[in-house]
Structure formats: structure tokens, C-alpha cells
Simulated scan of single mutants.
Amino acid sequence: MSDFTQRFLFDDSDVRGELVSLNDSYQHVLAKHAYPQPVAQLLGEMMAAASLLIGTLKFDGLLILQARSSGALPLLMVECSSAGELRGIARYHEEQIAADAGLPELMPDGVLAMTIDPTNGQRYQGIVDLDGQTLADCLTNYFATSEQLPTRFWLCADGTRARGLLLQQLPADRIPDEEERQASWEHVITLASTLKTEELLGLDNETLLHRLYHEDALRLFDPRALVFRCSCSRERSANALISLGQEDAEKLLQEHGGEVVIDCQFCNQRYGFDAADVQQLFAGGGSQAPSATHH
């Protein structure tokens, strides 16, 4: 399994953790666009972050991380479903991107939005400024300002592999005393902060956790698979055309030489609709392409 998250718990403290490793899904996203290295790195970090976050939420649906700015990287967006399906995309101005550019240079005056879109229930969105030196800093700030459980992130990506570590303080259970709880939390955070990028990228989970916490009792649970999968479809593209109304859809046909092509920006899939398709859509015939005998 090359793409997965893996949860762990400390037996003697109220802290949980999660590790993520992305290879195939990360490569699949990068293969769709020729991203500059700094953009590819940030996109990998955001994919790792979304994968970690989906494990902290008990719901069926979609988590969307979206960063926007007025800089060289106007958009960074990753979606992760509760089923472990990932996709991501970035919009950038290549001529403005230096080889060593980091988050502050790429996304000045940026904002980070986290959207929870459950299959059943109300959509929720939280927004925070991108005011950290790294994406991990910004996500840590998000949890600090939104009055949620204290949470820390460590993220890295190198254009080949993306990795991440999340630590989260749980409600009081094993340690009821507040001072002891805080000391326990600071203990696990301090040790995690010694982690080097090359260790996070290069070590397997068991080795990494042993190196950090060999004096602490913890349990490592079974991994949970992740996979790249785009949610685009011909049906969704057809619904977008239907939402325009028949008159506007037919105008689009005329403007585009008799065929409307809808491109998925995430996976580069193309869905074409000619006059017969559009007629079929508005006649209630569905989104499947008409047969060759259709007139």
C-alpha cells in the first residue's frame, strides 16, 4: 500500500496521532499539469493535510481545503472524501515563481478555507488568514483560532512523495489534572518537533514512531487506504449545461462551432456535447451520448 493514513494513540495520555504517506495519488495529480517545484511541493503538503484531517472527522462526505491569494499562486485546492478519494489542483503564474519560493512569497495576503460538505447535513466552512511561514503553521493556527481541540501539523513533499504527521490533544480522560495534561501535550509536541524532513520522507511509520516515542506506550492501528479519484462525470457536466437553460446552451453550441466541450481541471477529462446531445438533455433523455442512429 503506497498511499495510506495510519492512526496511533498514546496509552498514558490524552493524545492521538495520524501519519499519512502519499505516492501514487500525488504522482497522479502532478502528472496532469507541469507544476513548478515550489507549487508541486505545496500541493503535496495540502494533499497530505487533507488526508490527515479527514481522519479527525466522523462523517460521510467531502472535505475541501482551499487557499487563495493575490500572488503567484492564486489557488491551491484539494478535496478528500470520507472514502479516502483524493484530487487536487493549483493555479499559478509561472513567470512570478522563484525556484526557492515558499508559502509567504507564493501566497501573500492569502486565506485558507476548510469546508466540510457532508452527504447528509449542513455544509460548514471555516476561514483563516495564511499568516504562517508554512502550510503546517497555518493549519495549526486554524485550529488554535477556531477553538477546536489543540492540533499540530508537520507536512512535507518533494515532488515524488508527500508525508504528514498530525498530533491532537483529546478531551480529558486518562489525565484529569490540567497541568499534567499540558505537560503531557508539550512532551509529545517537543519530541515531534525534532523530526527532520528527511526522516519524515524516508522512514516507515513504525521506525519513525519508535525514534520519536520509544519511551512512551502507544498503539499503532491498521493503515487506511487512499487513492486518487476524480469526481467529474459526463452526468455532472450535463447537469451544468442544463443549469444554463436550453436557450443559453444552444447559444454556446453556435459560439463553439456545434460542440460544447467541458474540461475537468482536476484530471483533464473532456466531455463533449453536440447539438443532438443538447437536444436529448432538454428532452429529458439523460446525459449518455446518443447512438449513431439518432437524428
Rank of each mutant, 00 (worst) to 15 (best):
D3Y: 02
Q6I: 12
R7H: 15
D12R: 08
S13C: 11
R16E: 12
L19P: 00
V20A: 00
S21G: 11
N23R: 10
V39A: 04
V39P: 01
Q41E: 11
L52N: 06
L57N: 09
K58R: 12
G61C: 05
R68Q: 07
A72W: 03
L76F: 02
V78T: 02
G84K: 03
G84D: 01
E85G: 11
R87I: 11
G88Q: 01
R91V: 14
Y92S: 01
H93L: 12
E94K: 10
E95D: 13
A101H: 04
G102Q: 05
P104Q: 03
D109T: 06
I116T: 10
N120E: 12
Q122L: 09
R123C: 15
V128D: 13
T145W: 13
P150V: 02
W154V: 08
R161D: 02
L165C: 04
L167R: 05
Q169A: 12
Q169Y: 11
L170Y: 01
P171D: 07
I175L: 06
P176L: 13
E178V: 12
S184K: 09
L191K: 08
E199I: 06
E199G: 06
D204E: 07
A217V: 09
L220M: 09
F221H: 13
D222T: 13
D222Q: 15
S233V: 09
S237M: 09
L244C: 15
G245L: 11
E250T: 10
K251I: 09
I262W: 08
C264I: 04
N268H: 10
R270W: 12
Q280A: 05
L281G: 05
G285P: 08
A289Q: 09
H294D: 14
